[in-house]
Simulated scan of single mutants.
Amino acid sequence: MSRFKRLTIDDIAEMAGVSRTTASMVLNGHAERYRISMETVERVRAVAKKHNFTPSELARVLRKKCSQSIGLVIPNTSNSNQGFLAQELENFCLAQGYQLLIATSNEDAEREAVSIAQLAARQVDGLIVMPCSSEPERYLPWVERLPLVFIDRYVPESGIPSVVTDARASVVGLLGPVLAKGVDELVFFGGTPGLSPSCERLDGYRQALSEGGLAEQEGWVFERDFRLETGYALMQEWYQRHGRYPQALFTTAITLLEGVLAFIRQHHKMHEAPQYLLTFDDHPLLDCLPIPIDAIDQDCRMLASTSLELVLALIRGDILSERDLRVPARLTHRRLVV
């Protein structure tokens, strides 16, 4: 049995010497309507404050049929980009009078399904998900239950509204100047095959190669997942196979880049590395590295605000004029390419 005492409205009423109904009216802001004396109001509030008590949120949700909360499911809060996104979204939610509840999937579809179910069970008013599966049937049943919006990724043929970065154009813009410099080897470390960001970033890579007049060679493209340890493993496997680093390397996520840098630091103390290192996702700490890394900086603020606007519109019952929105990214060039 827990040693912690869970206070109820009955406990507050008893300590304040009033009825349960009176305590409830005071703490739910209805004292004036029911002409409860100021002396009683102050006594009830003082007891509640002393014991850090607030009325049951569950009871309020059941009574009003809304929770003033939004659920967010993302793969991993240790991913800096996803952490920034969650922080921005929480700020926007608070500004709109909503609480953000966060769960993680760890890029596991079954864990994601459990997280969505748990948030729905907590009666969130809407749900924002960064999907880790490309299977529409995993998400469509929830559309009948509550407003659902995808962020940063989308699921083709699901019809579920989404807000994503314009990845293809961003990748072409990032890689183009390096290819124009005369690079003749550009390796691609990608994430989970089939997911929308994986597909679009690979499409952008191949478009950049085509526009740069460089034919893709066998053994240049590797796709596995977005985990840090995968970036390390891919870099290790390449180096063991070739005995050197690729001339240019593009990683499709900051986590993959972290793994690559971990290998370089561990084995070569950052003194040996790809001549050109580029990545999707940016971080201020990249400014401090001895290796210049060009990056695609996603607009987390715009992704967060736009996805929240969509889910709030669905909560209100509005008809969405646009269901799939793309947000432009910024390019950070740390290496001077002439």
Score class of each variant (00 low, 15 high):
1 M>F: 12
3 R>M: 15
4 F>S: 15
6 R>I: 15
6 R>W: 09
15 M>Y: 06
20 R>Y: 10
22 T>S: 15
25 M>D: 10
30 H>T: 11
32 E>D: 12
38 M>N: 08
41 V>Y: 06
42 E>L: 09
46 A>H: 07
48 A>V: 12
50 K>Y: 13
52 N>G: 09
53 F>V: 06
53 F>I: 01
55 P>N: 03
71 G>S: 10
75 P>L: 05
75 P>Q: 11
77 T>F: 11
78 S>P: 01
80 S>N: 06
83 G>V: 02
84 F>E: 14
87 Q>S: 14
92 F>L: 06
93 C>R: 11
94 L>V: 09
98 Y>I: 08
102 I>Q: 02
103 A>L: 08
114 V>P: 10
114 V>W: 03
120 A>E: 04
120 A>M: 07
124 V>G: 04
127 L>S: 07
128 I>G: 03
128 I>A: 04
132 C>K: 02
134 S>Q: 12
139 Y>G: 07
139 Y>F: 14
141 P>Y: 04
142 W>A: 05
143 V>D: 00
146 L>Q: 07
146 L>N: 05
148 L>W: 02
149 V>K: 08
150 F>Q: 04
152 D>Y: 00
160 I>N: 02
164 V>C: 15
168 R>L: 12
170 S>L: 13
172 V>S: 08
176 G>L: 04
177 P>K: 12
177 P>W: 09
177 P>T: 11
179 L>W: 09
184 D>E: 15
188 F>S: 02
190 G>N: 00
192 T>Q: 10
196 S>Q: 03
203 D>S: 15
208 A>W: 13
209 L>M: 07
215 A>E: 14
217 Q>N: 08
219 G>H: 11
223 E>P: 00
224 R>H: 11
225 D>N: 13
229 E>H: 12
230 T>Q: 02
231 G>W: 08
234 L>Q: 12
237 E>H: 11
240 Q>I: 00
242 H>C: 05
252 T>F: 01
254 I>T: 00
256 L>F: 04
261 L>G: 08
261 L>M: 14
262 A>Y: 08
262 A>Q: 15
264 I>T: 14
267 H>Q: 14
268 H>M: 07
270 M>V: 09
271 H>M: 14
277 L>K: 04
277 L>A: 07
278 L>G: 05
279 T>M: 03
281 D>L: 08
287 D>N: 14
289 L>M: 12
291 I>S: 03
292 P>S: 11
294 D>Y: 07
294 D>H: 11
296 I>Y: 05
300 C>K: 09
302 M>D: 08
302 M>I: 13
303 L>H: 04
304 A>W: 01
309 E>S: 14
311 V>T: 13
313 A>V: 00
313 A>Q: 03
315 I>S: 02
316 R>C: 07
320 L>I: 07
320 L>F: 02
322 E>N: 07
326 R>M: 10
329 A>N: 01
330 R>D: 08
333 H>W: 15
333 H>R: 14
335 R>Y: 02
335 R>L: 11
336 L>I: 15
336 L>M: 13
336 L>A: 14
338 V>F: 13
